[in-house]
Write a protein that binds this DNA or RNA. Structure first.
Lengths: 233, 233
DNA sequence: ATCACATAGATTGTTGAACAATACTCCAAT
DNA sequence: ATTGGAGTATTGTTCAACAATCTATGTGAT
């Protein structure tokens, strides 16, 4: 009954499914979620005592969760003053777009060597967005747009790039909460998303990159304008 | 004595100089340093009790430091098992180069809009490297090469990109410790660094990008080869 | 009124001890 | 050689305490 013809070695490696998680990690996930969808407003102070009581965790565990989130720029830690939800400004939006341009344009340009179904994932996000528009689900359009750009980043086939994209988009979402974001912000870009996807699907990677660059220019301009006018307060 | 014509607003913003730091941050910095220059070997286990005794900090503070370093991929946290110095493999090197290509090539391509002395910083790193070679300081060549590529990333003028570059290069340095890195690994690239800088200095950004791409191909190939042969153990 | 200063209260920074839960080691048994 | 189990070591988490720092308030002097 030893290793006689078994196929254990052929089994897929154990994924993260079976990875248990610590309390601090779960708290960090919870905080991230609440920050991203606005339950915790930008600038809000996260009191150790109050949050600890709310989540039923000790201050030490909570502090570990804070440190876990520290590098994601969703929280700001001020020594001896506390932890606050980040409050991105116009400069942050500009910087976020710098990074997006670098990563996403690079991803599109190497689209020819993209992993198996990476382009298919982009198409799925396009249709997800169009479906949301069809039923007037503005929230859904925003979500689909996030998925779309994460899928674009996925063309790089790089775990590190995937995580970077996740972070960038999360931070951008936070920036949306700072200004009074119009519910149909993303709607105008749906057609462009479709166009870029079509170009990718036929292998016109440079043309897709040019089109994507146009999207960045337009979206960044619109965002920065919204910042420097309305949300100045 | 109120705000009569003072120039307080013209003063430079308070930098991080006056930012006090927590014990956990200092411990994290210390650990990062030790990991990067090899005092803590890849794969080494960081015992809470032993390290806490060594650094004279409590386990809780030490755990905060671990979480602070968590996102930098220099440490690996395995639940209920402990924290280990990361041990990058060949796939990690490949992924790191994917990111470097995306970021550094993008940086070079937008070199025309780079901040004031960004290109000068690259030149300084080139000379720093050549000076180190002149006195046979191989360690110094490696350090200068890091500075060189960080300066390349600096062309983007993006705080987020700067931090990303810092992290990528730190991780790459860790990968060097995994394999038996020859002391003169970087020496062959000094001339190429100089050539790229000269192209940047005259504004030939696309040519510089092509040259840089060549560097990536050569360096990645050499690294991966070193991994899959020698350091297989 | 405004400023300076002192005081008190609240919050964070850090420690140490304690206990539960899990992993690791080693030895016996089959 | 593998399995099972007891005992030990380490991590996960909480709690309580205290020092250090921030924040708000109040008082008095100009």
């Amino acid at each position: 009954m030893t290793a006689t013809g078994d196929r254990i070695d052929d089994l897929p490696d154990a994924g993260d499914e079976l990875e248990r998680s610590s309390t601090a990690e779960r708290v960090a996930d919870l905080l991230r979620t609440h920050i991203i969808d606005g339950a915790l407003a930008p600038g809000a102070r996260l009191s150790e005592e109050r949050l600890g009581r709310k989540f039923r965790v000790s201050r030490n565990t909570l502090r570990e969760a804070f440190r876990l989130l520290g590098h994601e720029r969703l929280l700001v830690h001020e020594f001896n003053r506390g932890v606050f939800v980040a409050k991105p400004g116009a400069e942050d939006v500009v910087d976020l777009f710098r990074m997006r341009r670098a990563l996403e344009l690079a991803a599109v340009r190497v689209g020819a060597q993209a992993p198996a179904d990476a382009i298919g994932a982009i198409g799925a996000a396009v249709e997800q967005g169009e479906a949301a528009r069809a039923r007037g689900d503005w929230e859904g359009i925003g979500t689909a747009n996030m998925a779309y750009h994460r899928a674009i980043g996925g063309l790089l086939g790089s775990p590190r790039a995937d995580e970077a994209m996740r972070q960038l988009l999360a931070e951008l979402r936070l920036a949306f909460h700072v200004m009074a974001a119009p519910r149909d912000f993303y709607a105008p870009y749906l057609d462009r998303n479709r166009r870029i996807y079509d170009l990718l699907a036929i292998g016109a990677f440079e043309a897709a990159a040019a089109e994507l660059a146009g999207y960045f220019d337009a979206a960044e301009d619109q965002l920065v304008r919204a910042f420097t006018t309305g949300a100045q307060a």
